[in-house]
Design a protein around this nucleic acid. Structure first.
Length: 203
DNA sequence: AAAATTTTCAACCGCCCAACA
DNA sequence: TTGTTGGGCGGTTGAAAATTT
């Protein structure tokens, strides 16, 4: 059972993208766009890749407006705030953050923020009431602002204003990212230089 | 210095949904 | 109305770098 694959797995290349493939994809998309059809696009662009893989590579890495690594404390706080209200709606969360992708946000949460919260609070899980039902259909089309569909929550608009950590922590609230010894800027502790393309970390 | 472990993130997988025939 | 197709999403995995032992 199950649906047919979107492409012939035996006939497409998988794994890390080479610089040549990146360039081929970038130049094609910049000249023609995806053509409204990611499945057909790889062939036109001369790529032996699955269309979904091309789409993912473009959206998560090659798009010119992407920022990689180096999440700020403010961004951490936004992610935390939105996660507690929306749950793991990474695309929604990312849509409120300039230059961030859902994959970036998801990775950042899973590798750093979740661990910090667990360490700081003992156990952490979003408040059950905070989770919203399955998104309305318009969510997925991008024609409607996702946040307009959850009017009951006051989600700050990151794109319009710089946020301070305090915006998301009530007066006297415990800073979940603060170090156990009470020192501040927990969000920056123990951070290593961000990785760059190919998994290599910047020095 | 080398081995083991941890961390990070790019990429894949499978599912859901909307559009269309 | 039903079946098919493609786009999009969240969850998960695996390779490589960084860190620790």
């Amino acid at each position: 059972m199950g649906r047919t694959p979107c492409c012939d797995r035996a006939a497409v290349k998988r794994g890390p993208w080479s610089p040549e493939e990146d360039e081929a994809l970038r130049s094609y998309v910049q000249r023609h766009g995806s053509g409204g059809n990611w499945i057909a696009m790889p062939k036109k662009a001369g790529l032996k890749r699955c269309g979904k893989s091309c789409r993912l590579r473009w959206l998560n890495y090659l798009r010119p407006d992407i920022r990689h690594g180096g999440f700020t404390a403010e961004e951490d706080a936004v992610i935390l705030s939105l996660y507690t209200q929306l749950g793991s709606k990474w695309s929604l969360i990312a849509s409120q953050m300039e230059g961030r992708t859902d994959n970036d946000v998801k990775n950042h949460w899973n590798t750093k923020l979740k661990k910090r919260l667990l360490a700081a609070a003992g156990t952490f899980s979003p408040a059950p009431h905070a989770r919203v039902p399955a998104p309305a259909p318009a969510f997925r089309t991008g024609h409607v602002s996702p946040l307009s569909l959850v009017p009951s929550v006051g989600i700050p608009t990151v794109k319009n204003r710089a946020y301070t950590y305090d915006d998301f922590l009530g007066a006297g609230a415990r800073d979940p990212f603060a170090a156990a010894d009470g020192s501040t800027s927990g969000a920056f502790r123990g951070c290593r230089p961000p990785m760059v393309h190919g998994g290599q970390r910047a020095q």
